[in-house]
Nucleic acid binder design. Sequence first.
DNA 1: TTGTGGCGGGG
DNA 2: GTGTACGCCACAA
Length: 797
Amino acid sequence: MKTSFYPTDISYVVKDGKPVIQLFGRTVDGKQICVLDAFEPYFYVVGKIDVKDIEALQQDDLMVVRVEKVKKNLNEHETSALKVFVNIPKAVPVIKDLVKQLGVDVYEYDILFTRRYLIDKGIVPLTLTEVDGEEVPAQLKVPCIKAKKIVPKEDKVLQPKMLAVDIETYNPVREVNPSKHPILMIGLYGKDFSRVITWKKFPTKEKYVEFVQSEADCLQRFVELVAQYAPDFLVGYFSDGFDFPFIHERARINKVKLDLGLDFSELEIVGRTQKEAKITGISHIDIFKFIRKVIARSMKTDVYTLDAVSGELLGEKKHVVAKELLFKAWDDNEGLEEYCKYNLQDCVLTYKLTEKLLPNLTEFVRIVCLPPFDIVRMTFSTFVEWYLMNQAVKRNEIVPNRPGRMEEMNRMSDRIKGAFVFEPKPGFYENLVVFDYRSLYPSIIASHNISKGTLNCKCCGDPKMETERGTFWFCGKQKGLFSIVISDLILRRAEIKKQLKTSKDPLLAARSEALKVLANSFYGYMGFPPGRYYCIECAESTTAWARHYIHKAIDAAKQSGFTVLYSDTDSLFVLLENKSKDDALALMEKINKDLPGMMELDYEGFYPAGIFVSLRAGDSGAKKKYALLDEQGNFKIRGFETVRRNWSFIAKDVQKKVLEIILKEHDAPKAKSFVRQVVEDLRKNKIPLDKVVIHTALSKAIAGYANVGPHVAAAQKMEAKGLEVGAGTIIKYVVIRGKGLIRDKVKLADEASQDEYDGEYYVQNQIIPGVERIFAVLGIGVDDLTKNTRQSSLGNF
DNA sequence: TTGTGGCGGGG
DNA sequence: GTGTACGCCACAA
């Protein structure tokens, strides 16, 4: 009988001395199943040795089953190897040590059994798979099929059934302590399903609230409801680090069995430093981990609280309630309904976030070919590595070993020379054109065949590249693994981008993004010390070629009569002066004609005006600090770190307005008089109070601060008023007039009045630092902005 | 400049 | 579990 299903999770058991893979998933008609498949553990041996010597190896009940002679490639060169099969997975590390003692090399002895299975069978989680086999009885919560044959079927993906979970705990002090404090409520949210289980009764009309007798009952009911809902994904926010470890400990204390696993196994917390909560057959997705690792780089926020992340990605926030007073509400049984609402809303947000990011998660699962549980918890280097390993196996390559401790230490001391930066002269410029190399590092790796196995080959030697650590070249006859794999990624992405022009499918967009991110991670991976495919010569060559090509573009621009203003890594800023945009495009064509393979210089844009500022007045470099104005009137601002959260609105407003006047109107005197007006208004307390409020988030508990800065002083005042203040609390304060230290002059925002704020403080510490460097470029000093001289002029520029 | 310790997220 | 763990920042030396 043939069954089509989407695998979601994988594990294995040893039955009658033989390992059996358990592949959990959901069938096309929506039923959960488990597929059982026999699979043999093995590893490779390379070296001169008698097969009989290996066959004889045994230790207790761990033994070699058989040995096969195979043809493989090692570091991209042909070799003969022995494939050593052992009886159970646990035997691999033991037997490989025995083999190693015989003086030969061993490989692929640390690839997890379940992952080995996925690679070898080419099974892609979340993707339609067909199993041929009969149903067999088994001790599981779901029907079991014993596989005769299992193959990937169609390029269709699962819409997983998801359940979000969140807990609230009794928390009288600022400390998380599951051994002392009980769980008060557990929230669940899924499709057409809302529930908050709690064990103190109060009157309510909300249907989602369910009362039970005790904390133990609450935990018990949680287990029942999860089983009833039968999710593919159980989702939480920081649930590896908080919710599940807490639930686990409370269940232990209350003697409740958390047999959530589809094989009746209990929730398991593994790992010392980075905890992971595992449930057999159900994928526990800690969406926080995925967001911080994969999505974070494309987000604006710099804090990853559920509130901030939901706000940005969903436009929805947490339910507002005094969380730190929950223990009191519980003791007095007053206002608990609000906390239930809060609990449920956290689940809703967690659910929606996962729903939104599902295309991204799914694409990483499909590219890297690992279960969602693993993908959510992996870093980029492991993504690249796992992808390479998959490709290596497909190409009959033996996967290199990870470095030993010593080797890794040696690698860590190796630093490579970075990218080329041509620093601009600070100043105001008109009519700039920006070019950049499209995917510079990936395209160099692809075009120059940069790979561990093609490094300094014996058969050819061009072109050579001189680097800091020697002369390197890459084979011109045989394509290397890195280069093949990265070319494939680039081509696949180009194909998807074509499709995206006529389609808005979020899966396609996510796939394109995933491919890009993966390709961009290759360069970093080559210099990643714990990597299996570590190749410092490859990384060094990549940056050396990058410098070569950017210099080439700079030279070509100069030769065509352009003034080169600025260049960093892969981009080039030139001034048009008396030339046209067409001249710039012609220059680009000329440069592109000589580029090898997949390399290409792109026209990034034309900017009517731009300003480059220096780090400090007098400093020559203006690296990565500029503001450009495009033809639509939008700003492109880089490196102005002055616009920060903990600045007052007036400081941000003034900086923005000054850039606008200078770039759009080219009117320095106007910008100057604007600032002077603000300075005067501040000194006369004419700027509204809410514009001078400073917002700062407390990074830790008040007691943790050794020296009391202004925001800490303000926090102390809040505490004195009886408000709960801790890490993460946003402190809003105003600096008022007076003598002494700043911290003695702070007032809470809602207690200060319009006429008492210290205008001079704002001028010196908020306004001036934000615009000082911009004016320095125009030859206008701080005194010109703040001193009370009515007359001072500067010609138009 | 390099090295180390703590913390993020959650309540 | 055929395992090994991050990455950034503040602060010190």
